[in-house]
Each structure stands twice: as C-alpha cells, then as structure tokens.
Amino acid sequence: MEVTFFSIFRHFLISVYGVLFAAIIGIPIGIIVSKRKSLARWVVRVSNIIQTVPHLAMVSMLMFSFGLGVNVVIITVFLYSLLPIIKNTYTGMTQVDKNALDVGKGMGMTAWQRLYMVELPLAISVIMAGLRNALVIAIGITAIGTFVGAGGLGDIIVRGTNATDGAAIILAGALPTALMSIITDWILGLIEHRLDPSSRTSKS
C-alpha cells in the first residue's frame, strides 16, 4: 500500500506540474489573442493540431528529444493542456461586459488596471473551467508515463496486465486514477463556482 500512496502522489504531481506550466504560458496567450482576434484562429488551430496526435505517439516522439523519465510526460501534459486553457481564457476575456470596461475607462484606469481589476475578475471562472478540464485530462495522460519510466499509477496497471491473474492489480491502479479525476473535477468545480461573479452577486 505504501507504494500505491507514493504512486498516487507522484501521478498527481506530474499532472499538476504539466498543467501549471501550461497555465503560465496559455493564460497570457489567451489574453493576447482576445485583444488581437486575427491571431486567435491560428493559435487555436495549432493547439487543435496538437490535440489530434495520439497521447502515446506524442510521448514516443518527445522521448527521442528528451529521453526517458518524468520530463517527457510533463511536456506531453503541457502540450495537451494548452488548448482548453487558451480557449477558455479567450472565451472568458471576450465575454466580459463591454459596459464594465467603459466604466473602468471612464474612471481613468489604464489598460493594465482594467485587465487586472475588471477583465480577469470577470473572466476568472471561465479560465478556471479550462484549468479544470486540463487537469482532469492530464491525470489520464499521465497514466501512460509508465512506458517512459515516469512512474505513477500506470506502473501498477501495466504490472497487472503482465500478471497471470492481474485483475486486482489493474483495479489497484485504475480505480485510484478514476477517483483522482472525479475528486479533482469536483473540488475545482466548487472553486470555479465560487469564483463565478454571478454566484457572488446572487449571494449578496
């Protein structure tokens, strides 16, 4: 069981790192393309192309450049997390009420002040939904990290497939993976709801 708890923690940490790096890159890109909409089509198109590559194929291609280990899986998670983060950031920013922006401009706010004090607070729940989707997807992608020596719950699943009577071993890896996705989705869903401006307005 000690190995299982270590595998769960390692699996989750790999997923979080990949999504975190994607957020650091993807959120600013989403903000930029929301201001320059001519770029949006091309950015989303490139992200969509990445999504069409099968996960195992992506891991295999990256393995030739980065070798075996955790870094390959983190980069894979990073690439697949970009699309939901960029698209949701773009959507959230473009859905901000123009009247709120006009009020901020009328109060003498600079473009940066309007971004941090008006646009991001109003778009944060939609951005959070993108992070939520990315992390749930990442947990599933990380399971294939076992093929490049990254560890995680995928090791347990593969061990079960190689065993003569490995159904219990497979479940020991598959069930925590599924449960991790469900719990993560639920917790981030609660955070997303709390960050939603409409929910705060209804409470007040």
Rank of each mutant, 00 (worst) to 15 (best):
Thr110Cys: 12
Asp97Tyr: 08
Pro84Ile: 07
Val72Ile: 07
Pro121Asn: 08
Lys105Pro: 01
Ile85Asp: 04
Ile74Ala: 00
Ile86Ser: 04
Asp102Cys: 07
Pro121Val: 08
Ser65Arg: 08
Met61Glu: 02
Met109Leu: 15
Thr110Tyr: 11
Ser60Leu: 13
Met61Tyr: 12
Lys98Pro: 03
Thr110Ile: 04
Leu120Asp: 00
Asp102Glu: 15
Tyr116Ser: 14
Leu68Arg: 06
Met107Ile: 02
Val43Arg: 01
Val70Glu: 09
Met117Gly: 00
Ser81His: 06
Ser81Val: 09
Pro84Gln: 05
Lys105Thr: 13
Phe64Ile: 13
Gln95His: 10
Gln95Ile: 00
Thr52Trp: 13
Val70Asp: 06
Gly106Met: 09
Thr89Gln: 03
Lys105Tyr: 11
Lys105Ala: 14
Ser81Gln: 10
Ile49His: 02
Ser81Arg: 09
Met58Pro: 01
Val73Ile: 15
Asn88Thr: 06
Asp102Asn: 14
Gly106Ala: 15
Val77Ile: 14
Gln95Val: 00
Asp97Cys: 06
Pro54Ala: 11
Phe64Ser: 09
Ala57Glu: 08
Asn88Lys: 03
Asn99Asp: 14
Phe64Pro: 00
Val44Ile: 15
Phe66Ile: 10
Asp97Asn: 15
Met109Thr: 02
Val59Glu: 07
Asn99Arg: 13
Gln113Phe: 08
Met107Glu: 00
Leu122Gly: 04
Trp112Gln: 13
Gln95Thr: 11
Lys98Cys: 02
Val59Ile: 15
Ala100Tyr: 14
Met58Trp: 08
His55Gln: 12
Met61Pro: 01
Val53Leu: 11
Val70Tyr: 03
Asn88Val: 07
Leu101Thr: 05
Ser65Asp: 05
Leu79Gln: 05
Asn88Asp: 02
Asn99His: 12
Val70Cys: 00
Leu101Gln: 14
Ile85Thr: 07
Thr110Arg: 13
Pro54Lys: 11
Leu82Ile: 09
Gly108Lys: 04
Val59Thr: 06
Val53Met: 11
Trp42Glu: 12
Ala111Thr: 13
Phe64Thr: 10
Gly106His: 01
Asn99Val: 13
Ala111Asn: 14
Arg114Ala: 12
Leu62Trp: 08
Val53Pro: 01
Val72Trp: 05
Val59Ser: 03
Val43Lys: 01
Asn48Met: 10
His55Asp: 15
Val96Leu: 06
Leu115Asp: 09
Ser60Tyr: 08
Met109Gln: 03
Leu120Lys: 00
Met93Trp: 04
Val53His: 08
Leu68Gly: 02
Pro54Phe: 13
Arg41Leu: 09
Thr94Tyr: 03
Val46Trp: 02
Arg114Gln: 15
Ser60His: 03
Thr52Tyr: 10
Leu83Ile: 00
Val43Pro: 02
Lys105Gly: 01
Val103Ile: 15
Asp97Leu: 10
Arg41Gln: 12
Leu115His: 08
Gln51Trp: 07
Val77Tyr: 06
Met93Phe: 15
Gln113Ser: 11
Ile49Val: 15
Ser81Asp: 07
Leu56Phe: 14
Thr89Lys: 02
Thr91His: 03
Phe78Met: 07
Gly69Tyr: 10
Asn88Tyr: 05
Leu79Ser: 08
Lys87Gln: 10
Arg45Tyr: 10
Arg45His: 11
Val96Gln: 06
Glu119Ala: 11
Val59Met: 15
Gln113Arg: 11
Ile85His: 05
Lys98Tyr: 12
Leu101Val: 13
